[in-house]
Design a binder for these strands. Structure first.
Lengths: 203, 203
DNA sequence: ATATATGTGTAACGATTGTTATAGATGTCG
DNA sequence: CGACATCTATAACAATCGTTACACATATAT
């Protein structure tokens, strides 16, 4: 349907903008605010285009989001694929974690993973709702932390263990399970994941 | 401001609905579809109330969401607090994972954790976007899995390790890090989480 | 140059968003 | 029984949503 480089038939007026750059702007916006949190008005502003140009080049909003997501998967998200190409398994796993941490906290792009934030909607409007959810998660982590401190005093937890870090680590595992649930993983499968987790922890 | 039980001044027409039940309906809806994915029209239908009744009893949409979220934290989400009250640390951690898996996959309520899904918007409209994000996450996990299979053939990974489960486990950890990023955890802190993770795995 | 095909800009579309004004119903209190 | 206070229902509000009709600009092809 679409053909931008070659001259096949009668050409009309050529496109006056860089499709890649426009798509990048859309990607960043979806990445930051999620699908529902990003309006076409926001997009027109960020992409520097008027609605008809967007619709002509990328289709409707859903289609634009899909294109932006593909660009994300084939671009910024390649840090994972790079890790997988390390020679040994040990290096793969170390690189996986190293790259992930680096990517998630890189200031060069919206922080976080678009596969989460892109669905975690947040127009400026809904920001307070999102923040409140974050607060609840932090409270849970705080509860866990104080329980760990208690265990430390009772000697159940070695004194050289950093309680903050360990609470965050456990929180990370539990939060990861919530994502697996969002992925549609079954209870049986999740139990096996949890089994591996507690086994590796040492319980 | 509000007073429902006691008779203090002149009373007017009493409320014709159960506030708790109405709030439960709102909670379920937000839990399933997120803040932005749930419209006031949806809420009026699910709660069986007309807009003015909702606004009089719970305030505006933001306020209603906050009340619903509190109800969630103090109700269904107490599974975590219950785990923390186990006598020993070992039991705490085992219960934490057991309860979490059970809760996340319980068919008695919307699956997943509201602190994620409540912010992960999805009106029916945006569902395809969310599903596409899930698909990307699954593809990443699949890539990881095939890399593990390769490692297994080369002997780096013990033959008795279930590759599916192990891939999901690593995915869980990495996804959990993405949530930590959404929580606003710093790079330095995330590195320490990752250190604990790889140490426990054995690398 | 003329015809044609495509892109761009403006301005509007109907639908839905969250919210509220208004009128009527229904209870409690003096 | 009124007088009053509150709740309920209908219907509308302005604003924004995603989307498109229309007119005009700008390129290629003959």
């Amino acid at each position: 349907m679409r053909q931008s480089g070659k001259t096949l038939k009668k050409m009309g007026r050529p496109r006056g903008f860089d499709e890649g750059a426009a798509l990048d702007a859309a990607m960043r916006l979806f990445w930051e605010r999620g699908y529902e949190g990003t309006s076409m008005a926001d997009l027109t502003k960020a992409m520097g285009l008027n609605p008809p140009s967007i619709y002509a080049a990328f289709g409707d909003k859903k289609s634009l989001f899909t294109l932006a997501a593909k660009r994300y998967a084939e671009g910024p998200a390649q840090y994972q694929a790079r890790a997988l190409s390390e020679p040994t398994l040990r290096e793969v796993i170390l690189a996986l974690f190293r790259n992930t941490v680096e990517f998630l906290t890189d200031s060069g792009h919206p922080s976080g993973c678009m596969t989460l934030t892109g669905a975690m909607a947040c127009g400026v409007e809904a920001n307070s709702a999102k923040e409140f959810m974050t607060e609840i998660r932090k409270q849970n982590e705080a509860g866990l932390k104080s329980r760990l401190q208690q265990a430390r005093k009772s000697g159940e937890l070695a004194a050289d263990v950093n309680v903050d870090d360990y609470a965050r680590y456990l929180s990370t595992l539990l939060g990861g399970l919530a994502i697996q649930a969002a992925n549609g993983v079954s209870r049986k499968e999740m139990k096996r994941i949890a089994d591996i987790a507690v086994r590796h922890i040492g319980y």
